[in-house]
Design a protein around this nucleic acid. Sequence first.
DNA 1: TAACAAAACTAACGCTTATTAGTTTTTAAG
DNA 2: CTTAAAAACTAATAAGCGTTAGTTTTGTTA
Lengths: 197, 197
Amino acid sequence: MGNIKAIANGSKKDVILKKAAALFRLKGFKASSMRELALTIGVEAPSLYNHIVSKSELLQHICFSVANEFTLQLQEVELSKVSNTKKLEQLIRFHIKMMVHSFDEVYVANNEWKYLDEPYLSDFLKQRRVYENKMVQLVKEGILKKELKNVHPYVSVLTILSAVRGVEFWQRQKKDISVEELENNMVNQLLTGLTNI
Amino acid sequence: MGNIKAIANGSKKDVILKKAAALFRLKGFKASSMRELALTIGVEAPSLYNHIVSKSELLQHICFSVANEFTLQLQEVELSKVSNTKKLEQLIRFHIKMMVHSFDEVYVANNEWKYLDEPYLSDFLKQRRVYENKMVQLVKEGILKKELKNVHPYVSVLTILSAVRGVEFWQRQKKDISVEELENNMVNQLLTGLTNI
DNA sequence: TAACAAAACTAACGCTTATTAGTTTTTAAG
DNA sequence: CTTAAAAACTAATAAGCGTTAGTTTTGTTA
Protein backbone atom coordinates (compact mmCIF):
# COMPACT_ATOMS: atom_id res chain seq x y z
CA MET A 1 0.00 0.00 0.00
CA GLY A 2 2.40 2.66 1.14
CA ASN A 3 5.13 3.22 3.59
CA ILE A 4 5.52 5.28 6.71
CA LYS A 5 7.25 8.55 6.02
CA ALA A 6 9.62 9.44 8.81
CA ILE A 7 9.74 13.14 9.53
CA ALA A 8 12.98 15.05 9.95
CA ASN A 9 14.81 13.93 13.07
CA GLY A 10 12.02 11.55 14.04
CA SER A 11 11.66 7.79 13.83
CA LYS A 12 8.72 6.10 12.19
CA LYS A 13 7.45 5.32 15.64
CA ASP A 14 7.25 9.07 16.25
CA VAL A 15 4.99 9.41 13.23
CA ILE A 16 2.72 6.68 14.54
CA LEU A 17 2.65 8.31 17.97
CA LYS A 18 1.72 11.68 16.53
CA LYS A 19 -1.08 10.25 14.41
CA ALA A 20 -2.27 8.12 17.32
CA ALA A 21 -2.51 11.16 19.58
CA ALA A 22 -4.58 12.96 16.96
CA LEU A 23 -6.89 9.99 16.44
CA PHE A 24 -7.26 9.20 20.15
CA ARG A 25 -8.06 12.84 20.80
CA LEU A 26 -10.69 12.96 18.08
CA LYS A 27 -12.42 9.62 18.64
CA GLY A 28 -11.26 8.48 22.05
CA PHE A 29 -8.90 5.58 22.74
CA LYS A 30 -11.47 2.79 22.79
CA ALA A 31 -13.24 4.01 19.68
CA SER A 32 -9.99 4.32 17.73
CA SER A 33 -9.09 1.17 15.82
CA MET A 34 -5.64 0.15 14.70
CA ARG A 35 -7.06 -0.21 11.21
CA GLU A 36 -8.20 3.41 11.22
CA LEU A 37 -4.88 4.57 12.64
CA ALA A 38 -3.08 2.66 9.90
CA LEU A 39 -5.33 4.28 7.31
CA THR A 40 -4.38 7.81 8.39
CA ILE A 41 -0.74 6.80 8.04
CA GLY A 42 -1.25 5.11 4.68
CA VAL A 43 -0.36 1.56 5.62
CA GLU A 44 -2.06 -1.70 6.58
CA ALA A 45 -2.76 -2.29 10.26
CA PRO A 46 -0.39 -5.23 10.81
CA SER A 47 2.48 -3.17 9.40
CA LEU A 48 2.31 -0.94 12.45
CA TYR A 49 3.53 -3.82 14.57
CA ASN A 50 6.94 -3.66 12.93
CA HIS A 51 7.38 -0.42 14.88
CA ILE A 52 5.27 -0.70 18.00
CA VAL A 53 4.44 -3.33 20.57
CA SER A 54 0.74 -2.73 21.06
CA LYS A 55 -2.06 -0.20 21.01
CA SER A 56 -1.69 0.17 24.77
CA GLU A 57 1.95 1.10 24.35
CA LEU A 58 0.90 4.10 22.27
CA LEU A 59 -1.36 5.38 25.02
CA GLN A 60 1.30 4.80 27.65
CA HIS A 61 3.84 6.74 25.67
CA ILE A 62 1.52 9.68 25.08
CA CYS A 63 0.34 9.91 28.68
CA PHE A 64 3.77 9.67 30.28
CA SER A 65 5.57 11.98 27.92
CA VAL A 66 2.97 14.64 28.77
CA ALA A 67 3.11 13.87 32.49
CA ASN A 68 6.90 14.07 32.46
CA GLU A 69 6.88 17.42 30.71
CA PHE A 70 4.59 18.86 33.37
CA THR A 71 6.58 17.33 36.20
CA LEU A 72 9.82 18.70 34.80
CA GLN A 73 8.39 22.19 34.44
CA LEU A 74 7.04 22.12 37.98
CA GLN A 75 10.47 21.23 39.34
CA GLU A 76 11.96 24.12 37.42
CA VAL A 77 9.37 26.57 38.73
CA GLU A 78 9.86 25.37 42.30
CA LEU A 79 13.55 26.25 42.11
CA SER A 80 13.06 29.73 40.67
CA LYS A 81 13.44 32.62 43.08
CA VAL A 82 10.17 34.47 42.57
CA SER A 83 7.02 34.97 44.63
CA ASN A 84 4.57 32.11 44.99
CA THR A 85 2.04 34.11 43.03
CA LYS A 86 4.53 34.38 40.20
CA LYS A 87 5.23 30.65 40.39
CA LEU A 88 1.55 29.88 40.06
CA GLU A 89 1.30 32.30 37.16
CA GLN A 90 4.20 30.59 35.42
CA LEU A 91 2.53 27.22 35.85
CA ILE A 92 -0.80 28.48 34.53
CA ARG A 93 0.93 29.94 31.49
CA PHE A 94 2.79 26.68 30.92
CA HIS A 95 -0.44 24.68 31.06
CA ILE A 96 -2.05 26.98 28.52
CA LYS A 97 0.96 26.80 26.21
CA MET A 98 0.92 23.01 26.41
CA MET A 99 -2.79 22.94 25.59
CA VAL A 100 -2.09 25.15 22.59
CA HIS A 101 1.04 23.54 21.19
CA SER A 102 0.61 19.88 22.14
CA PHE A 103 -3.14 19.82 22.15
CA ASP A 104 -3.70 16.23 21.02
CA GLU A 105 -1.23 14.76 23.47
CA VAL A 106 -2.36 16.82 26.46
CA TYR A 107 -6.00 16.13 25.70
CA VAL A 108 -5.35 12.39 25.54
CA ALA A 109 -3.37 12.44 28.79
CA ASN A 110 -6.20 14.41 30.43
CA ASN A 111 -9.10 12.37 29.14
CA GLU A 112 -7.96 8.88 28.13
CA TRP A 113 -5.57 7.91 30.94
CA LYS A 114 -8.25 5.66 32.41
CA TYR A 115 -7.59 3.14 29.66
CA LEU A 116 -3.98 2.65 30.78
CA ASP A 117 -3.21 -0.89 31.93
CA GLU A 118 -1.67 -1.60 35.30
CA PRO A 119 0.86 -0.79 36.55
CA TYR A 120 0.91 2.27 34.32
CA LEU A 121 -2.49 3.43 35.50
CA SER A 122 -1.39 3.54 39.14
CA ASP A 123 1.90 5.17 38.24
CA PHE A 124 0.16 7.86 36.24
CA LEU A 125 -2.33 8.65 38.97
CA LYS A 126 0.45 8.76 41.54
CA GLN A 127 2.45 11.18 39.43
CA ARG A 128 -0.60 13.38 39.03
CA ARG A 129 -1.32 13.31 42.75
CA VAL A 130 2.23 14.36 43.52
CA TYR A 131 1.90 17.21 41.03
CA GLU A 132 -1.35 18.41 42.60
CA ASN A 133 0.11 18.22 46.10
CA LYS A 134 3.09 20.33 45.11
CA MET A 135 0.77 22.96 43.65
CA VAL A 136 -1.27 22.87 46.85
CA GLN A 137 1.96 23.51 48.74
CA LEU A 138 2.68 26.55 46.57
CA VAL A 139 -0.76 27.96 47.40
CA LYS A 140 -0.38 27.23 51.12
CA GLU A 141 2.94 29.07 51.24
CA GLY A 142 1.43 31.96 49.30
CA ILE A 143 -1.29 32.26 51.92
CA LEU A 144 1.21 32.20 54.78
CA LYS A 145 3.19 34.95 53.08
CA LYS A 146 -0.04 36.95 52.73
CA GLU A 147 0.41 37.00 48.97
CA LEU A 148 -2.77 35.05 48.50
CA LYS A 149 -6.21 35.25 50.04
CA ASN A 150 -7.19 32.76 52.69
CA VAL A 151 -8.69 30.28 50.22
CA HIS A 152 -8.99 26.52 50.48
CA PRO A 153 -5.72 25.50 48.80
CA TYR A 154 -6.97 22.25 47.30
CA VAL A 155 -10.10 23.82 45.82
CA SER A 156 -7.96 26.58 44.39
CA VAL A 157 -5.58 24.16 42.68
CA LEU A 158 -8.47 22.10 41.38
CA THR A 159 -10.09 25.22 39.99
CA ILE A 160 -6.90 26.31 38.25
CA LEU A 161 -6.15 22.90 36.77
CA SER A 162 -9.68 22.56 35.45
CA ALA A 163 -9.87 26.10 34.15
CA VAL A 164 -6.80 25.77 31.95
CA ARG A 165 -8.38 22.76 30.29
CA GLY A 166 -10.88 25.23 28.87
CA VAL A 167 -8.32 25.97 26.19
CA GLU A 168 -9.79 22.85 24.63
CA PHE A 169 -12.81 24.89 23.55
CA TRP A 170 -10.68 27.75 22.32
CA GLN A 171 -9.00 25.29 19.95
CA ARG A 172 -12.18 25.12 17.87
CA GLN A 173 -12.53 28.84 17.12
CA LYS A 174 -9.07 30.21 17.58
CA LYS A 175 -9.48 32.80 14.85
CA ASP A 176 -10.65 35.87 16.77
CA ILE A 177 -8.26 35.79 19.70
CA SER A 178 -4.51 35.28 19.95
CA VAL A 179 -2.66 32.93 22.28
CA GLU A 180 -1.27 35.89 24.24
CA GLU A 181 -4.71 37.38 24.72
CA LEU A 182 -6.08 33.99 25.78
CA GLU A 183 -3.23 33.46 28.20
CA ASN A 184 -3.39 36.91 29.78
CA ASN A 185 -7.15 36.84 30.18
CA MET A 186 -7.15 33.43 31.81
CA VAL A 187 -4.29 34.27 34.17
CA ASN A 188 -6.00 37.51 35.17
CA GLN A 189 -9.33 35.89 35.84
CA LEU A 190 -7.80 33.15 37.95
CA LEU A 191 -5.48 35.42 39.92
CA THR A 192 -7.46 38.65 40.20
CA GLY A 193 -11.01 37.61 39.42
CA LEU A 194 -13.76 38.81 37.17
CA THR A 195 -15.53 41.51 39.16
CA ASN A 196 -14.60 45.11 39.89
CA ILE A 197 -13.85 44.76 43.61
CA MET B 1 -31.55 -14.73 36.52
CA GLY B 2 -33.18 -11.80 38.22
CA ASN B 3 -35.47 -8.98 37.50
CA ILE B 4 -35.17 -5.23 37.35
CA LYS B 5 -36.31 -3.56 40.54
CA ALA B 6 -38.15 -0.38 39.81
CA ILE B 7 -37.45 2.33 42.35
CA ALA B 8 -40.18 4.39 43.97
CA ASN B 9 -41.89 6.59 41.40
CA GLY B 10 -39.56 5.47 38.60
CA SER B 11 -39.97 3.09 35.71
CA LYS B 12 -37.58 0.23 35.06
CA LYS B 13 -36.16 2.28 32.26
CA ASP B 14 -35.15 4.87 34.84
CA VAL B 15 -33.20 2.22 36.71
CA ILE B 16 -31.37 1.25 33.54
CA LEU B 17 -30.62 4.90 32.78
CA LYS B 18 -29.23 5.50 36.26
CA LYS B 19 -26.98 2.44 36.10
CA ALA B 20 -25.93 3.30 32.56
CA ALA B 21 -24.88 6.79 33.62
CA ALA B 22 -22.78 5.33 36.42
CA LEU B 23 -21.16 2.77 34.13
CA PHE B 24 -20.57 5.20 31.27
CA ARG B 25 -19.01 7.65 33.71
CA LEU B 26 -16.69 5.04 35.16
CA LYS B 27 -15.59 3.24 32.01
CA GLY B 28 -16.58 5.52 29.16
CA PHE B 29 -19.38 4.89 26.67
CA LYS B 30 -17.43 2.82 24.16
CA ALA B 31 -15.77 0.69 26.82
CA SER B 32 -19.09 -0.05 28.54
CA SER B 33 -20.78 -3.19 27.27
CA MET B 34 -24.45 -4.00 27.46
CA ARG B 35 -23.48 -7.27 29.15
CA GLU B 36 -21.70 -5.39 31.91
CA LEU B 37 -24.57 -2.96 32.28
CA ALA B 38 -26.97 -5.90 32.55
CA LEU B 39 -24.73 -7.47 35.18
CA THR B 40 -24.86 -4.41 37.43
CA ILE B 41 -28.63 -4.55 37.18
CA GLY B 42 -28.83 -8.28 37.76
CA VAL B 43 -30.27 -9.39 34.46
CA GLU B 44 -29.14 -10.84 31.12
CA ALA B 45 -28.18 -8.35 28.42
CA PRO B 46 -30.98 -9.13 25.95
CA SER B 47 -33.55 -8.52 28.69
CA LEU B 48 -32.64 -4.84 28.66
CA TYR B 49 -34.15 -4.56 25.21
CA ASN B 50 -37.62 -5.10 26.63
CA HIS B 51 -37.22 -1.62 28.09
CA ILE B 52 -34.89 0.29 25.84
CA VAL B 53 -34.33 0.68 22.12
CA SER B 54 -30.55 0.68 21.95
CA LYS B 55 -27.34 1.54 23.73
CA SER B 56 -27.24 4.83 21.83
CA GLU B 57 -30.66 5.75 23.17
CA LEU B 58 -29.29 5.58 26.70
CA LEU B 59 -26.54 8.06 25.87
CA GLN B 60 -28.99 10.35 24.09
CA HIS B 61 -31.31 10.38 27.06
CA ILE B 62 -28.53 11.11 29.54
CA CYS B 63 -26.98 13.89 27.47
CA PHE B 64 -30.19 15.70 26.66
CA SER B 65 -31.77 15.49 30.09
CA VAL B 66 -28.64 17.17 31.46
CA ALA B 67 -28.54 19.73 28.66
CA ASN B 68 -32.20 20.55 29.21
CA GLU B 69 -31.72 21.06 32.92
CA PHE B 70 -28.95 23.56 32.27
CA THR B 71 -30.90 25.33 29.55
CA LEU B 72 -33.94 25.62 31.80
CA GLN B 73 -31.92 27.05 34.68
CA LEU B 74 -30.26 29.57 32.39
CA GLN B 75 -33.65 30.82 31.20
CA GLU B 76 -34.76 31.22 34.80
CA VAL B 77 -31.63 33.15 35.73
CA GLU B 78 -31.96 35.43 32.73
CA LEU B 79 -35.43 36.47 33.87
CA SER B 80 -34.42 37.20 37.47
CA LYS B 81 -34.00 40.86 38.39
CA VAL B 82 -30.51 40.86 39.86
CA SER B 83 -27.13 42.19 38.75
CA ASN B 84 -25.25 40.38 36.01
CA THR B 85 -22.57 39.45 38.53
CA LYS B 86 -25.24 37.81 40.66
CA LYS B 87 -26.62 36.00 37.62
CA LEU B 88 -23.22 34.57 36.85
CA GLU B 89 -22.77 33.59 40.47
CA GLN B 90 -26.11 31.78 40.41
CA LEU B 91 -25.09 29.91 37.31
CA ILE B 92 -21.72 28.91 38.78
CA ARG B 93 -23.43 27.65 41.89
CA PHE B 94 -25.93 25.70 39.82
CA HIS B 95 -23.14 24.05 37.82
CA ILE B 96 -21.38 23.01 41.01
CA LYS B 97 -24.59 21.65 42.52
CA MET B 98 -25.25 19.65 39.36
CA MET B 99 -21.72 18.23 39.43
CA VAL B 100 -22.28 17.23 43.04
CA HIS B 101 -25.78 15.80 42.89
CA SER B 102 -25.99 14.40 39.36
CA PHE B 103 -22.33 13.65 38.93
CA ASP B 104 -22.59 10.60 36.69
CA GLU B 105 -25.04 12.20 34.30
CA VAL B 106 -23.23 15.54 34.06
CA TYR B 107 -19.88 13.83 33.61
CA VAL B 108 -21.26 11.69 30.79
CA ALA B 109 -22.84 14.70 29.09
CA ASN B 110 -19.55 16.57 29.41
CA ASN B 111 -17.23 13.81 28.28
CA GLU B 112 -19.12 11.25 26.21
CA TRP B 113 -21.34 13.42 23.98
CA LYS B 114 -19.02 12.77 21.04
CA TYR B 115 -20.43 9.27 20.74
CA LEU B 116 -23.93 10.59 20.02
CA ASP B 117 -25.25 9.65 16.59
CA GLU B 118 -26.54 12.24 14.18
CA PRO B 119 -28.74 14.20 14.30
CA TYR B 120 -28.42 14.16 18.08
CA LEU B 121 -24.76 15.09 17.98
CA SER B 122 -25.45 18.28 16.03
CA ASP B 123 -28.43 19.14 18.18
CA PHE B 124 -26.43 18.72 21.35
CA LEU B 125 -23.57 20.89 20.12
CA LYS B 126 -25.99 23.53 18.95
CA GLN B 127 -27.71 23.62 22.32
CA ARG B 128 -24.36 23.95 24.05
CA ARG B 129 -23.29 26.74 21.71
CA VAL B 130 -26.49 28.66 22.43
CA TYR B 131 -25.88 28.22 26.16
CA GLU B 132 -22.32 29.53 25.88
CA ASN B 133 -23.44 32.50 23.80
CA LYS B 134 -26.04 33.49 26.35
CA MET B 135 -23.42 33.38 29.09
CA VAL B 136 -21.13 35.49 26.94
CA GLN B 137 -23.97 37.99 26.65
CA LEU B 138 -24.30 38.13 30.44
CA VAL B 139 -20.60 38.92 30.73
CA LYS B 140 -20.75 41.55 27.98
CA GLU B 141 -23.62 43.34 29.71
CA GLY B 142 -21.79 43.13 33.02
CA ILE B 143 -18.79 44.86 31.46
CA LEU B 144 -20.98 47.61 29.96
CA LYS B 145 -22.55 48.20 33.37
CA LYS B 146 -19.03 48.42 34.86
CA GLU B 147 -19.85 45.53 37.16
CA LEU B 148 -17.16 43.44 35.58
CA LYS B 149 -13.61 44.10 34.49
CA ASN B 150 -12.86 44.64 30.82
CA VAL B 151 -12.14 40.95 30.16
CA HIS B 152 -12.53 38.97 26.96
CA PRO B 153 -16.09 37.66 27.45
CA TYR B 154 -15.63 34.38 25.63
CA VAL B 155 -12.43 33.49 27.45
CA SER B 156 -14.13 34.33 30.70
CA VAL B 157 -17.08 32.04 30.02
CA LEU B 158 -14.81 29.27 28.86
CA THR B 159 -12.74 29.62 32.03
CA ILE B 160 -15.83 29.46 34.23
CA LEU B 161 -17.35 26.49 32.46
CA SER B 162 -14.09 24.56 32.61
CA ALA B 163 -13.35 25.48 36.20
CA VAL B 164 -16.63 24.14 37.54
CA ARG B 165 -15.82 20.80 35.98
CA GLY B 166 -13.04 20.60 38.54
CA VAL B 167 -15.68 19.36 40.97
CA GLU B 168 -15.01 16.05 39.26
CA PHE B 169 -11.76 15.77 41.22
CA TRP B 170 -13.41 16.81 44.44
CA GLN B 171 -15.77 13.84 44.04
CA ARG B 172 -12.89 11.46 44.82
CA GLN B 173 -11.94 12.92 48.22
CA LYS B 174 -15.03 14.72 49.34
CA LYS B 175 -14.43 13.95 52.98
CA ASP B 176 -12.46 16.96 54.21
CA ILE B 177 -14.51 19.75 52.66
CA SER B 178 -18.24 20.39 52.48
CA VAL B 179 -20.27 21.28 49.41
CA GLU B 180 -20.86 24.80 50.75
CA GLU B 181 -17.16 25.37 51.30
CA LEU B 182 -16.37 24.02 47.85
CA GLU B 183 -19.02 26.20 46.26
CA ASN B 184 -18.03 29.40 48.07
CA ASN B 185 -14.33 28.95 47.41
CA MET B 186 -14.83 28.30 43.74
CA VAL B 187 -17.24 31.21 43.28
CA ASN B 188 -14.85 33.53 45.10
CA GLN B 189 -11.84 32.51 43.10
CA LEU B 190 -13.67 32.93 39.80
CA LEU B 191 -15.31 36.24 40.68
CA THR B 192 -12.72 37.94 42.89
CA GLY B 193 -9.52 36.02 42.18
CA LEU B 194 -6.83 34.37 44.20
CA THR B 195 -4.41 37.16 45.02
CA ASN B 196 -4.54 39.96 47.59
CA ILE B 197 -5.03 42.95 45.28
C1' DT C 1 24.39 -7.93 -8.57
C1' DA C 2 24.06 -10.80 -4.44
C1' DA C 3 22.74 -11.03 0.08
C1' DC C 4 20.64 -9.55 4.23
C1' DA C 5 17.65 -6.89 7.01
C1' DA C 6 13.70 -3.91 7.44
C1' DA C 7 9.19 -3.24 6.61
C1' DA C 8 5.46 -3.87 3.90
C1' DC C 9 1.73 -7.20 2.54
C1' DT C 10 -2.42 -10.95 2.85
C1' DA C 11 -4.90 -14.14 5.47
C1' DA C 12 -6.60 -15.55 9.46
C1' DC C 13 -7.30 -16.34 14.54
C1' DG C 14 -9.82 -15.96 18.75
C1' DC C 15 -12.54 -12.79 21.14
C1' DT C 16 -15.98 -9.28 22.11
C1' DT C 17 -19.62 -6.49 20.58
C1' DA C 18 -24.74 -4.88 20.05
C1' DT C 19 -28.61 -6.85 18.83
C1' DT C 20 -32.38 -10.33 17.12
C1' DA C 21 -35.26 -14.53 17.25
C1' DG C 22 -37.66 -17.65 19.56
C1' DT C 23 -39.07 -19.59 23.97
C1' DT C 24 -40.12 -19.85 28.81
C1' DT C 25 -41.15 -17.75 33.13
C1' DT C 26 -43.27 -14.26 35.90
C1' DT C 27 -46.78 -10.96 36.94
C1' DA C 28 -51.43 -9.01 37.04
C1' DA C 29 -56.42 -9.02 36.06
C1' DG C 30 -60.99 -11.17 35.48
C1' DC D 1 -57.74 -20.91 38.47
C1' DT D 2 -57.42 -18.99 33.60
C1' DT D 3 -55.61 -16.02 30.56
C1' DA D 4 -53.00 -12.47 28.50
C1' DA D 5 -49.33 -9.43 28.68
C1' DA D 6 -44.82 -8.24 30.33
C1' DA D 7 -40.37 -9.44 30.93
C1' DA D 8 -37.16 -12.70 31.65
C1' DC D 9 -34.34 -16.43 29.45
C1' DT D 10 -31.04 -19.17 25.85
C1' DA D 11 -28.98 -19.33 21.52
C1' DA D 12 -27.21 -17.30 17.74
C1' DT D 13 -25.71 -13.79 14.19
C1' DA D 14 -22.89 -10.60 11.76
C1' DA D 15 -19.52 -7.26 12.36
C1' DG D 16 -15.42 -5.38 14.30
C1' DC D 17 -11.51 -5.75 17.29
C1' DG D 18 -6.15 -6.33 18.37
C1' DT D 19 -2.87 -9.16 17.07
C1' DT D 20 -0.04 -13.21 14.92
C1' DA D 21 1.88 -16.06 11.20
C1' DG D 22 3.80 -16.45 7.07
C1' DT D 23 5.18 -14.33 2.78
C1' DT D 24 6.61 -10.79 -0.42
C1' DT D 25 8.51 -6.39 -1.43
C1' DT D 26 11.71 -2.69 -0.55
C1' DG D 27 15.96 -0.64 0.80
C1' DT D 28 20.89 -0.96 1.98
C1' DT D 29 25.49 -2.58 1.95
C1' DA D 30 29.43 -5.49 0.14
